[in-house]
Amino acid sequence: MAILIFFVLHWYSSLFFQTFFLHRYAAHKMFTMSKTWERIFFVLTFIFQGSNYLSAYGYGLMHRLHHAHADTEKDPHSPKFSANLFDMMWKTKLFYSDVVRGRESGIEEKYYKDLPSWKSFDMFASNWFNRLAWGTAYVAFYYVYATEWWMYLLLPIHFLMSPVHGAIINWFAHKFGYRNFTTTDTSMNFLPFDFLMMGESYHNNHHKHGSRANFGGFRWHEIDPTYQIIKLFNFLGIIKLRNTKKELVAS
């Protein structure tokens, strides 16, 4: 039971900071926050993503390019230009590494605007010592608490939690699901009720309304859990939603 609880907690906590901080804040600037809160969320992202920490700067830039060039050869991660899921994940990894290390050239300046950047912390959080330390901690936890051999099959997901989250949406939500809106790409709403991806699976809604903090809300069953937390953070003054009246009416 302890293993399953740990897995679920890691899944949703890692996913929350990916969708809240890296996606909706870093890439899209759907809300603003103070520099202090930004640094706090950098640290929290490191704590909860652990061995697969993603840079807000690198993720934000890559995701902006995905929206600008969805399902074209310039898309950093499109099923249309990958042989299979793992091929797409590997290409995404290489592109992300180039962006983080400043090796990617030819990207227009507009895509860099207002990206959250804390290079020294990114270097610390992404170094292999920390990644191995987190991985060792996961293995130790399983060694102490695993009661069945099959539980160890969950360990690779812990090691690659953030890439797995990204792959689910970038692959499956461009292949399976339903569409509320006609778009120039293949984005779909992967799940009618998003119990798995905290609102991220409403991918077609998001591609149509890229600046809207609420990914759901267009059908009665489209409830975006992350947006409910965003509204709470906005009420508490931790963040400030852009177009607050429009967002709250739409929710």
Rank of each mutant, 00 (worst) to 15 (best):
L155P: 13
Y138A: 01
E148M: 09
T92W: 06
K175M: 10
R131D: 07
E104V: 13
S162C: 11
T186L: 06
P192S: 15
V99F: 03
L132A: 10
H206K: 05
V99W: 00
Y178G: 01
M123H: 07
E104M: 05
Y145L: 06
L94C: 11
A146N: 03
D194I: 05
W118L: 14
H165Q: 13
L155G: 08
A213W: 01
D114V: 01
F181L: 09
T147P: 01
W134C: 00
F193Q: 11
S211N: 05
W149V: 10
I157T: 14
T147A: 04
G135H: 05
F190C: 08
W134V: 01
V144N: 03
W118T: 00
H209R: 10
K91Y: 04
I107E: 11
R131N: 04
S117I: 01
G177H: 01
A133W: 00
R101V: 02
T182V: 14
F176Q: 09
F129Y: 14
K113P: 01
Y145I: 02
D98E: 15
G199I: 06
F95V: 03
N205R: 08
L94S: 14
T184E: 15
L155S: 09
E109M: 02
W171T: 01
T186Q: 15
R179M: 09
A125Y: 13
H207F: 06
Y142P: 03
A213E: 13
T184V: 04
S120N: 14
F129A: 12
G102N: 15
H207M: 10
N130Q: 02
A125R: 12
H207Q: 05
L153C: 10
T182C: 02
V144W: 08
Y111P: 00
F95E: 07
Y202T: 12
E109F: 03
L155K: 13
V100P: 04
R212T: 05
L153H: 07
S120C: 09
G210Y: 05
K175A: 03
K119C: 00
V144C: 11
K175P: 02
N189F: 00
N170L: 08
R212G: 01
F190P: 04
Y138D: 15
W134E: 00
N204L: 06
A140M: 03
G210M: 07
W149Y: 11
E108A: 15
H158D: 07
F129W: 10
I168T: 11
F176A: 05
V139H: 06
H174Y: 10
D194N: 06
K208S: 00
G210T: 09
S201C: 06
L160I: 03
Y178I: 10
P156V: 06
V139C: 11
D114I: 00
H207I: 07
Y96R: 13
